[in-house]
Structure formats: structure tokens, C-alpha cells
């Protein structure tokens, strides 16, 4: 009994199309969510994250 025999009897061939549709729906949902007006400020804040790590260091009280 080879792997291909086991798989062959599982009859899964149509799942590929189903998976594709699910992926498409998830992607559309992500995209729609991204452009909702309520999200925009969050995204702007998020975009600045890499620039803020120095700020957090600057906020540490320094002796000098």
C-alpha cells in the first residue's frame, strides 16, 4: 500500500477549487477591511512604529 493508493481513495480532487475560493474570499475581506474609514488612524500609527523605538529610548531619563 503506497501513499498514492491511500490518497487515491480519499477522493479529494475538488478541494483545490474550494480552497481557492476560500483564499479569494479571505483576501477580499482583508482588502475591504483595510479601506474602512475607522481603520485609517490605526494604520497611520502602525506605520510609524519603526520610527518610534528611538523615541522610547529618548524618554528614558538620562544622567547627562
Amino acid at each position: 500500500m503506497k501513499l498514492s493508493d491511500i490518497m487515491g481513495h480519499a477522493n479529494l480532487s475538488m478541494y483545490a477549487e474550494v480552497a481557492m475560493v476560500i483564499f479569494l474570499l479571505v483576501f477580499v475581506a482583508v482588502a475591504v477591511r483595510l479601506f474602512l474609514p475607522s481603520r485609517q488612524q490605526d494604520l497611520r500609527d502602525a506605520a510609524r512604529l519603526p520610527l518610534e523605538d528611538d523615541a522610547s529610548i529618548a524618554a528614558v531619563p538620562r544622567k547627562d
Binding site: 501513499l3 498514492s4 490518497m7 487515491g8 480519499a10 479529494l12 480532487s13 483545490a16
Partner: peptide
Amino acid sequence: LFEILPTFLIK
């Protein structure tokens, strides 16, 4: 899986 399985399962 959905890309690879067919070559394994469809003899």
C-alpha cells in the same frame, strides 16, 4: 496541500 495532493492522489 491542495496543489501537491493531486499529483499524489490522481494516479
